[in-house]
Nucleic acid binder design. Sequence first.
DNA 1: ATATGCTCTGCAATCGTTTGCACAGACTTT
DNA 2: AAAGTCTGTGCAAACGATTGCAGAGCATAT
Lengths: 340, 340
Amino acid sequence: MASSRVTLRDIAEEVGVNPSTVSRALNPKTRGMVTGEIARQITEAADRMGYRPNPFAYSLRTNRSFTVGVLVPDLTNPAFAPIIKGIDNVLEASGYSVMVANTDNVAERERRNVDKFRERHVDGLVIATARRHDPLIDECRTEGTPLVLAVRKTTDSDISSVVSDEVTGGETIMSHLAQLGHRRVAYVAGPQELSTGFERHQGYVRGLNANNLEYDAGLVEFCDAFTEEEGRRAASRLLASGRDFTAIVAANDMIAIGIYDELQTKGLVCGRDISVVGYDDMLFSSKFDPPLTTMHSPLLDIGAEAARILLEQIDDPETPPRSVKMTPELILRKSTGKPA
Amino acid sequence: MASSRVTLRDIAEEVGVNPSTVSRALNPKTRGMVTGEIARQITEAADRMGYRPNPFAYSLRTNRSFTVGVLVPDLTNPAFAPIIKGIDNVLEASGYSVMVANTDNVAERERRNVDKFRERHVDGLVIATARRHDPLIDECRTEGTPLVLAVRKTTDSDISSVVSDEVTGGETIMSHLAQLGHRRVAYVAGPQELSTGFERHQGYVRGLNANNLEYDAGLVEFCDAFTEEEGRRAASRLLASGRDFTAIVAANDMIAIGIYDELQTKGLVCGRDISVVGYDDMLFSSKFDPPLTTMHSPLLDIGAEAARILLEQIDDPETPPRSVKMTPELILRKSTGKPA
DNA sequence: ATATGCTCTGCAATCGTTTGCACAGACTTT
DNA sequence: AAAGTCTGTGCAAACGATTGCAGAGCATAT
């Protein structure tokens, strides 16, 4: 009675009709074609016999796999895991399965996995690894499988994406700091080839202007990656520069942690001697020492929305690309205060 | 030149042979059957034309999908994400794709997803949601798809699993505490229907004995889930009991965090007034306030090893079940100290 | 009464592989 | 030289669905 041993043919024999009739009866779209009573018998038999369509046969015939591929730089990074969860939640409800691939930020692995996804004929792709200029994404687009970018987008606007409004996020942070009285705030930027890194930095600059603070190139340091270690090094450079500042804003929470590390080794206490603000509000950022003031990115929602758009696109490939921008929210905690 | 438009038949026509010959030439196992020169021409043509086998056709014929399903309670939980990453790493290298499903600890969702995996004919399953007595797992076993349990296992020993040595882990923690001079240590246990919760508690009891400390039922509180909130409540009960103790060991880091919360609201300072130890050494446990002394669970390795065993089992279904136990490692940080 | 249309079902092809079987030709063996 | 391997290839049948097409049966319109 168990696994998909029972086929359309079995049911057909049971009921005494042709397999094609069974197929039609079981497919909602064609069910109307078959006589009510027969259709009833067929579904009854199918249930009784425990019929489960063979997905390979189905896919071979239709070229649909009810599968989508998800590409992330790091499954274990709290700034990405929620995205996958959001995707999984909506896709599971729609009967899709999600295949994930971890790329550790290496382009070659990204390409390899996208190729694998394509070979497997996934119905769609959600990619969270995009660079602002990304040949891989270009290929994907021209190649034609539905695609939506999550969190990180390309400069290209005619491709679906769902991200958070990074620049106003960055701007808001600056206003918060300005309001507290900070005049000289340093910035530890993320990789500029990523939209997140780029736009958050843009937000910083705008925030400076909006609050009549002047831009000082000596106050911004760039990281090659969104990592603790990079953050620590940047903070170290900042501190060593001898420049004067009362706050540091980080391009994300991971970098902020690195800043925490460096401040601590230098004997500075964050929140009192100097303010620090992060970005993303990733898991446990409220548990750090001190709890981190940060901009909340609605990652779960981003994932869910990306999945929804992808489904639209799968259902109707003619759907024009759609880009949505979620709004982040400032979370005030203990790492910021009035300037010392 | 692009997607899998080119089939065996195309190559066959190009080279002037029968598709079956092409199939044999391209399959390493049967390549020897075909004349060297022809085989060479075939691979050359295949490369040139960009041949990619159609996975659906392959799977339909062979019933192999080169896909494995992974079931976890929570993708975003740092105590699970690394497992998936470990699995993904080894499976990716072997050409498999991994499908993940998030179950949020709800049995019905576990079943639904396992069913889905089966319908999709995954070649194997790794499950990280098992309860000690788990009907779903029993079914899986009798049903026959290769299966390995990760982190959480059933009481059943004839089923492959890879876990960490929880009881000696728990025991070691107690020895550490005893060595510091603690005589009365409380325990906040995890769900007893999970092997982790159960065995870690067992380790606690053994550790008590090993160090000539007596068991006091009033000093152990049970949690219904490995969550911060449950931990907080348990700590609250403990504190309210009026009992005397100088340390609390938590069944995992999440619970430990909850304990931190409660201590803080009660004005107790962890590491000085009272010691706390966690379990798992999940991401950021070194960043908490204070940095958490905890038992490191080699989650990445567990995932990787689970994947390896699964591959063995897939390659040869007759392989007897294998259970491996990884050894955890105590990480000393700031949350433990001499009794106040 | 014939023509026309409509509804339902069956036939058979197809998707792209793999693989058992038959067989042709060459190579041993006696 | 006849008989018996052995090798390499092709043929065709699966695997289990979907779907265009044809036609049977019946009702309606002419």
